[in-house]
Write a protein that binds this DNA or RNA. Structure first.
Lengths: 368, 368
DNA sequence: GTCGCTGCTGGTAGCGCTGTCAACGTTCCT
DNA sequence: AGGAACGTTGACAGCGCTACCAGCAGCGAC
């Protein structure tokens, strides 16, 4: 063969094989399964590849092997802090592995998700990470028919497609409300924005806890489909106060809203927590730094992303986890914004492991 | 040929061509350059593809055409809010185009960036988006030798590799300090974290403005290499106060730090802006909502990402922009946290277009 | 009427790699 | 000693698509 290089001047596997004095297929094996080679050839190929600065052509590999080394990730938003933490975990876990991440934004639309899923699946990804448990029937069918591992993240539910990692937003919201009850609060408002399925389940948890205590009233709930923001938190709180001035606590569906409520309280000289207690959700970094410090429900977002990607890669490589559904739990982090009425400082409530899954199954009305 | 389908059951271009009654190569052309086909064949191929649900095999396309439809993006952090806005812009602009985004995280290391660059370039990306202007000499050489369009984002400097979009952090910092001068402040502290090249240039801008006014003192500057956070803002501010209790304003290298300073002031009953003025950087959403509202330097992050990706795609397709270096400018958004001393409410300072580039060239000490 | 041009179409030959299967040498067992 | 079993290696034939070039018709110019 006359040519030594590809047109573009790149080093090919054949050159590496030639320098190492082995056949191309042996060199190929070195990169896919080094243990299959004798030590002598292995070192020869290794040094030849290094000397030539060989980088495999992924397109050729994908074409020949009929599969890619791409992990598809479908998330609903790039703006939301919550997802950037999850993504960081995913990227961290994929780094150093042979897999690369292909990210797409569903913009909270399950129709868009379905479209993207079709696109992804057509390229035969090595694995797929999808957000949540509320896919369309069509999406669900495609996922079940897919011949790659799939992991659903952000929450857990009774019918995993394959693997699943998250926590129960329903239980977490109930725990937050229980915490407020324990502090002596009764007229607890709910403030929520965006109202995606997970926020909706937080609302469901709040409603059920309030109903259990015979304290639920529809006018305590203020929500909007608008994307969340700190400013919006203030605005929703203003609405809430107008509907029910006697409120003594607010449970916010996320921390941005909580910060907005805090600022609005300050603007109106409402003391926190004396006049109104505030509880957020997610426990973003600033919550511990605010004045007063803000109570929140801690969720393990980075760990969720990282573990999801790690589990997925393990599964891709044939080592399926013995525990395909992982409940990462949550923890109510009690801070000044909700701890005045009682000096009571007993340990905060915590979400269980597999227990929460069972609890969810026992409460099917909230997960369909 | 006997087989009608690929092993995996996927529809191939050949099937589409057969159904449309044209040759495979004609069908292929339909997807790459529909105008080259006669109207009759075009519609035939189109409906055949639709009927069969054909999805092209990107790996085969990449292998045969020696190029991919991937835009590589190298950013230093996934945590930082600033980058999530930029990324959102990039993803939004790429959506609907044929290009997909391949993201990698350099973790603020130019050595890591060099390594990733080598990896990316080996796969022949259609284009590349890199952060900043501080690449290693090796990276720089690779970028200049690359046969794809490249755009540097986040800041502008005198020697673009190819295209460039951003603003002058140096000028923006000077404008922030000038604003504080105009409000009558003199003992202005600087608080910075992470100290990546762009934060460093903000510090340089602060230093030069302070020196111009003969007000610079080293002890007014508190920085750390630690990643930024709200809590850290408070801690750095405490340091600053310990070094110089007479301070009357703080310029924070970003908004998280500014929020931390605000909370720390509240904790210590320091009134803002009466006793100490605060100015942040980036103008994140919460700045307008805080109590008092916080002055900040607005930067067009989403627009930067969006425009960068749009310009890059245009360049990939052969339509190079007539203006390869774009200065998006900045704007000092004056709010309560820095506007008490004077009731002066004249228009805020704004970063110019190409002017800022020239200014940077005139100040080479800050860009090497 | 011939030539060359343009617009459209098709055939051939790979792109660089890997799946499959066969073949080889060696070891270990009976 | 013969044979099975294993570990290791290589030949062949594509993966699905596109670059390149050739061919063909239809047209206007000379």
């Amino acid at each position: 063969m006359g040519r030594k290089r590809t047109k573009s001047g790149k080093i090919r596997l054949a050159e590496v094989a030639e320098l190492a004095g082995v056949s191309p297929i042996t060199a190929s094996r070195f990169f896919r399964n080094p243990e299959a080679l004798s030590v002598a050839k292995r070192t020869r190929v290794e040094s030849a590849a290094k000397e030539l600065g060989y980088v495999p052509n992924l397109a050729a590999r994908a074409l020949a092997s009929q599969r890619t080394e791409v992990i598809g990730v479908l998330i609903p938003s790039l703006t939301n802090n919550v997802f950037s933490d999850v993504l960081r975990g995913i990227y961290d876990a994929s780094e150093g592995s042979r897999y690369s991440i292909q990210l797409s934004n569903t913009r909270y639309s399950i129709l868009q998700e379905e479209k993207l899923l079709r696109l992804f699946l057509a390229q035969k990804p090595a694995g797929l990470i999808v957000t949540g448990i509320d896919q369309t029937a069509e999406s669900r069918a495609m996922l079940e028919a897919a011949d790659c591992p799939i992991i659903q993240i952000m929450e857990i539910g009774p019918h995993p497609v394959d693997m699943m990692i998250g926590f129960s937003h329903y239980d977490a919201a109930r725990a937050a409300v229980a915490h407020l009850f324990a502090q002596g609060h009764r007229k607890i408002g709910f403030v929520g924005a965006r109202m995606d399925p997970r926020v909706q389940r937080r609302l469901d948890g709040y409603v059920s806890a309030m109903k259990d205590a015979a304290l639920f009233e529809q006018r305590l709930v203020v929500t909007t489909a608008t994307p969340t923001s700190v400013t919006l938190g203030g605005a929703l709180f203003v609405d809430l106060l107008a509907r029910e001035p006697e409120i003594d606590a607010v449970f916010c569906a996320n921390d941005d809203l909580a910060l907005g409520v805090l600022f609005e309280c300050r603007r109106r000289d409402i003391t926190v927590p004396e006049q109104i207690a505030i509880v957020g959700f997610n426990d973003l970094e600033f919550m511990a730094s605010a004045v007063p410090t803000l109570t929140s429900v801690r969720t393990n977002r980075y760990e969720m992303g990282r573990t999801a990607a790690t589990m997925l890669i393990e599964a891709i490589e044939g080592r399926r986890p013995e525990q395909p559904v992982l409940d990462l739990g949550f923890k109510v982090i009690e801070r000044q914004s909700s701890s005045s009425r009682h000096a009571d400082s007993r340990p905060a409530a915590a979400g269980a492991g597999a227990g929460a899954v069972n609890k969810m199954v026992a409460l099917p009305s909230t997960h369909d």
